[in-house]
């Protein structure tokens, strides 16, 4: 972390994303992360907001979090443009010299983070899930190798750019935060190469799966589409159950999008969640971590899903489910 300066001299940038005139909720998680960093490295937190109508957004941010906002009004920018974001944040960084720049581990966050890192000759650590201190240095934890290993990553230089896995930090929403300052600037920037053309809601979230008491989810480990039949029969054992799946299964068209569980699918919290042949990637966990009781069936005893399970079944899914159904039948008679 270099040498620690006096409090107040350093700053931490948080990059806000927004859509449909609303701040994206991941911002509040980034704020929690910034506060954790602040414990080790005293600094002023500034929320960086860009857009062509920032007033309402600034006010929402500062009222909810109590943090200071530096808003930049840019006529040419409606929602997001990687070229404008990189340029404007680079200029703000030259002025405020932030020690940390924090963005979401999201498509937009990733567009900006790596680009800025090159421009600012900064280190960049993406997809972090928690942080701590070892030997006087802040270490960021991120998953590697399908969640089977945690890497604790440090950087020797400042500034450091990080992207934070959505869902990893509790949202920061203090009870009665004093309202922070909003500083609004105006710049013009006509992008050369990249022109934003708009946004559309591609998928309408269907909440029916969120209401199920039990969710049985199929992952890549089921192997063949035909084996979904087994998963369906397995789910039928549980009253009030629904079948879900990992993104891979949905991308293949084996299940419908509304059945996808995870970061880019449904976030569910059933009383019982059964993961069948799912490795436990953080993007999947983000959708089911709140479940009451978790059972995982996976043939790999080291699969990451087992770290998030109450009961671990190390078996081939296509042998286990038939055995389960047979045993269940015996019991019924």
């Amino acid at each position: 972390m270099g040498k620690m300066n006096k409090p107040g001299q350093k700053s931490i940038f948080i990059i806000a994303e927004h859509n449909e005139n609303k701040v994206k909720p991941v911002l509040f998680e980034l704020a929690s992360c910034a506060y954790k960093i602040k414990k080790y490295c005293p600094a002023e937190i500034k929320v960086i907001l860009l857009g062509n109508e920032t007033e309402k957004l600034s006010s929402e941010i500062t009222h909810v979090t109590g943090l200071d906002v530096v808003a930049t009004e840019i006529n040419e920018l409606a929602l997001f443009n990687p070229e404008i974001y990189k340029k404007v944040i680079e200029d703000l960084a030259a002025e405020f010299l932030p020690s940390f720049i924090i963005a979401g581990h999201t498509p937009r966050g990733l567009d900006v983070a790596s680009g800025l890192a090159v421009r600012m000759k900064a280190a960049c650590i993406t997809g972090i899930e928690s942080l701590g201190e070892t030997e006087g240095k802040i270490c960021f934890r991120r998953q590697i190798f399908y969640g089977k290993i945690d890497a604790h990553v440090t950087a020797d230089s400042e500034p450091l750019i990080i992207t934070v896995q959505p869902g990893a930090f509790e949202p920061f929403k203090p009870e009665n935060a004093a309202t922070g300052k909003v500083e609004t600037r105006r710049v013009n920037y006509v992008p050369f190469f990249t022109h934003e053309k708009g946004i559309r809601r591609s998928i309408f979230q269907d909440s029916s799966i969120s209401e199920a008491k039990v969710i049985v989810s199929a992952g890549n480990g089921i192997g063949e589409k035909e084996n979904l039949d087994l998963v369906n029969r397995f789910a039928a054992v549980f009253p009030g159950s629904a079948v879900g799946g990992s993104r891979i299964i949905v991308d293949r068209g084996w299940l419908e999008y509304r059945q996808q569980i995870g970061l880019t699918g449904a976030q569910v919290a059933p009383e019982l969640y059964i993961a069948c042949g799912i490795s436990g990637a953080s993007q999947h966990l983000a959708g089911m971590r709140g479940s009451g009781f978790v059972v995982a069936i996976n043939k790999d005893p080291k699969a990451a899903i087992f770290n998030e399970s109450d009961v671990c079944v190390v078996e081939d899914i296509n042998k286990f489910i038939p055995a389960f159904l047979e045993e269940y039948k015996k019991k019924e008679i």
Binding site: A117, A122, A123, C124, I125, T134, K137, C139, Q143, I144, G147, K148, I149, D150, A151, H152, V153, T154, A155, D156, S157, L160, V294, A304, F306, N307, E308, S309, D310, V311, C312
Partner: peptide, 16 residues
Amino acid sequence: GQKNKQLTIPEKKREG
């Protein structure tokens, strides 16, 4: 710019 200080096996978050 960055380096791995240490790799660890993830903690168990549930009974397992």
